[in-house]
Computed example of a mutant assay.
Amino acid sequence: MNQFLGSWQLWACLSAAFAALTAIFAKIGIENVNSDFATFIRTVVILGALAAFLAATSQWQRFDSISGRSYLFLVLSGLATGASWVCYFRALKFGNASQVAPIDKLSVVLVAIFGALLLGERLAFRNWLGVGLIGIGAMLVAYKA
């Protein structure tokens, strides 16, 4: 059981399921709310939930135990996340969740490209084929006939 809970596949599948629920709940929630303010509310909820989770599981770390390089990239990641959320909620305000979410998932394609270019990750031909199919699939799902 412990090996199952330590599986990246489990957590990736749960992430996908919660991301899907995020789109549905957000689309309903922003009906009469400014999308940027809705993003703010979401962020406050996440901050509170994570603080409670860290406290409940005793996972707090001392802030001075983290390197400057880690802080830099975590801040950059936070800024990118915030920008992504603002854009995502705006897209949901104007578009259908079933079209916005697949375009948002083009991030999978971009992560593969950035991972190869910036992190030196190597993907085999079949992996790149899968990345290409994800891109094509996202566009086909988002295209409204």
Rank of each mutant, 00 (worst) to 15 (best):
S107K: 03
R62W: 14
I28N: 09
T39Y: 02
A97K: 05
W85V: 12
L72M: 10
R62N: 13
I103Y: 06
N2A: 09
I41R: 00
L106K: 00
L79Y: 01
L129T: 06
S65T: 05
F73P: 00
F53K: 00
A80T: 14
G115E: 04
K144Y: 04
W60T: 11
S107A: 15
Q9P: 00
K93I: 02
A51P: 12
I103S: 00
G82H: 09
A51H: 13
V100K: 00
L47W: 14
A17G: 03
N2G: 11
L106Y: 00
F125G: 05
A145V: 15
G120T: 05
W60M: 14
N2I: 07
A83S: 02
L14W: 06
G95P: 01
A56M: 06
A26W: 01
Q99N: 06
L129H: 05
F63Q: 10
M1I: 08
G135E: 01
I46R: 12
L50Q: 11
V75R: 07
V109I: 03
A112P: 04
A49I: 13
L117F: 01
G135S: 02
C13H: 04
A101C: 04
G137W: 00
A19Q: 11
V44C: 11
Q61Y: 08
M1W: 10
A116W: 13
T57P: 12
T22S: 14
F18P: 00
A16S: 04
F18M: 14
A138R: 04
F37K: 02
A23M: 10
N32H: 12
A116P: 02
A112D: 06
K105E: 05
A23D: 12
N96D: 02
Q3T: 15
K105Q: 08
S7D: 07
K27M: 14
G48F: 15
A19T: 15
L110A: 10
R122H: 11
V86P: 01
G78N: 05
A145P: 12
A12N: 06
F63V: 14
K27N: 01
N32W: 15
N34H: 08
D36L: 13
N34D: 15
S58H: 12
S107G: 11
T22K: 00
A124M: 07
S77G: 03
S35R: 05
A142T: 12
L92Y: 02
L79N: 09
T57G: 04
A80D: 12
G115C: 04
A116S: 12
S84A: 12
L119N: 06
F94M: 09
I24H: 06
L54E: 09
N2Q: 11
R62E: 15
W85P: 01
F73S: 07
L50K: 03
T57D: 02
S65C: 04
A112F: 03
I24P: 05
T39P: 09
I41V: 15
A20E: 13
A17T: 09
V131R: 00
V75A: 04
I136V: 15
W11Q: 05
Q3R: 15
T81A: 06
